[in-house]
Amino acid sequence: MRSFAYHQPNAIPEAVSLLAEQPESRPLAGGMTLIPTLKQRLAAPAALVDLAGLPDIKGCSNGNAVVTIGAMTTHAEVASSPLVKSQIPALAALASVIGDPAVRDRGTIGGSVANNDPAADYPAGVLGLGATIVTSAREIAAENFFFGLFETALKPNEIITAIRFPVPLSAGYAKFKAPASRYAVVGVFVAKTATGVRVAVTGAGSGVFRVPQMERALAEAFDPTAIAAIKIDAEGLTSDIHADAGYRAHLVTVMAKRAVATALGAA
């Protein structure tokens, strides 16, 4: 690992100005992706701005049928939060299948969402629930946040402070886990809300995406059988040594059915 300057600001504006001052600096949240990247010398930032000292961006709260999760809340905290478990159990379940226990003890929701790994779990939950990403500068709807393969709407000196999840009527997440990396080969988050059904898919392509055809079918009848016959086009989906695009396309339907079944069970 190459050397870097280290800052641990105590306030969000300070963090933002530190990032702005040094164009080669990077914010550090849980570090579960950034630190391995540094170790393997794949990145060499001049400075790290550690967000661990920022007040008020950790923890789960609710109000107005919205669950707000601070950006520095760990996956383990989300998975075990009584609030999340009661309001959006599918989100707690999603957090409980990220990585492994030691990763869940350090990894954060803000870090995961900002990183936007194409096989990460949270982007499916954020898009599937129609969440709002709250940053140091603004609020961004999930639709406008994820730009595919590690790209997001975040500006270089903008940090996520919280994510606001509208509480759905019911929701489910089903993940087909890569046995080695524990990332999603395909993960599907399905949410039934007052305004309709949302289906968000991670792992299958270069970034999280929705499946309008399934959303329409589920709006008609919220049941696994409603989407069983829907085939996803493999064109443009990921093929790698673990799974070919055709298989991933098939898994989207299977996982979507299972997510719906979970949502019905949990409703």
């Binding site: 890569a178 046995p179 080695a180 990396s181 040594i241 673990h242």
Partner: peptide
């Protein structure tokens, strides 16, 4: 689970870490 996979054209080891080689 386990498989050491080489890319046929480049000769690169595709399963070159514990992320891709499943123990």
């Amino acid at each position: 689970y386990e498989n050491a996979v080489y890319d046929e054209s480049s000769g690169q080891l595709m399963s070159g870490s514990l992320m891709d080689y499943c123990m």
